[in-house]
């Protein structure tokens, strides 16, 4: 039976791990390579790096981090943030990433996904959708870490990225990100019901129950969290044991 995945995410800025509250007020807390190794030794099913400054700054730092991490961690590694061109993807994959997560570039031109998936395979193309609730049962896609409104309906967009070659969707609720109040389960449910590719839940985890909700109520194939693991509130193993005790199958 396929197991539900737990994915710790490391937000990286200038080569250091940070996690912001609603993407502001960044706290500096650690070396990404070392952190990734701790997670992978602790049973993380995948590791995710999000380069949160990639849009404006030099990308070589993240490439170097990916290269070092890939030599030490033998679980899948996803890298996102500022992935806009085929060359960006090539560079990250050559450095040792297994998947890249594409956000703004997919919103700007969804056919970029077609090109990317044709060249590298759908298995390594994750589309990161940042969505914000705009009215009852309606969510809109945002870009640039939640700063830019796009007017695009999140559900429609999710269907489109699937058709265009995304292998997975990384769905972040911008309303919940950094709040520790739990995933937006309604949003998750509507997206997992309207697509046939795996969805990774993100944004808002504060307790282990939230992970349970993301999988069981939201239908997510994987749950991503940053701060609850990063600040040591819970170990990956504790999260897995908790889910297992509630009959959610995980890799123990």
């Amino acid at each position: 039976m396929l197991k539900n995945r737990i994915i710790p995410c490391l937000d990286v800025k200038n080569g250091r791990v940070v996690k912001g509250i609603n993407f502001v007020e960044l706290k500096d807390a650690g070396d990404p390579v070392e952190q990734a190794k701790i997670y992978s030794d602790g049973g993380a099913d995948e590791i995710c790096f999000l380069d949160i400054t990639a849009s404006n700054e030099n990308r070589d730092t993240i490439i170097d981090i990916v290269r070092k991490t890939a030599k030490e961690c033998f679980v899948p590694l996803t890298v996102g943030g500022g992935v806009r061109t085929i060359q960006n993807i090539t560079d990250l994959l050559l450095a040792g990433a297994d998947k890249v997560s594409i956000n703004t570039a997919a919103v700007k031109d969804v056919s970029f996904l077609k090109e990317a998936s044709k060249k590298f395979g759908t298995q390594c193309i994750v589309v990161a959708i940042d969505a914000k609730k705009v009215s009852d049962n309606k969510w809109e896609v945002f870009t640039h870490g939640g700063r830019n409104k796009t007017g695009i309906d999140a559900v429609e967009f999710a269907k489109q990225v699937e058709t265009n070659g995304a292998g997975e969707i990384l769905l972040t609720s911008m309303d919940r990100d950094g709040t520790k109040s739990g995933y937006d389960v309604e949003l998750l449910k509507v997206i997992t019901d309207s697509t046939n590719i795996p969805v990774i839940a993100s944004g808002g985890v504060g307790t282990l129950d939230h992970l349970y909700d993301g999988i069981v109520k939201g239908g997510a194939s994987a749950v991503l969290a940053a701060s609850i693991f990063h600040y040591g509130e819970y170990k990956i193993k504790e999260a897995k044991e908790y889910l297992n005790s509630k009959n959610v199958s995980v890799r123990l």
């Binding site: 039976m1 197991k3 539900n4 995945r5 298995q123 046939n196 194939s221 994987a222």
Partner: peptide, 15 residues
């Protein structure tokens, strides 16, 4: 995938 019952790709850890 039994008409969408199982998501594809089959991604993740399986026994």
């Amino acid at each position: 995938n039994q008409s969408g019952k199982f998501k594809l790709p089959h991604i993740g850890w399986n026994e």
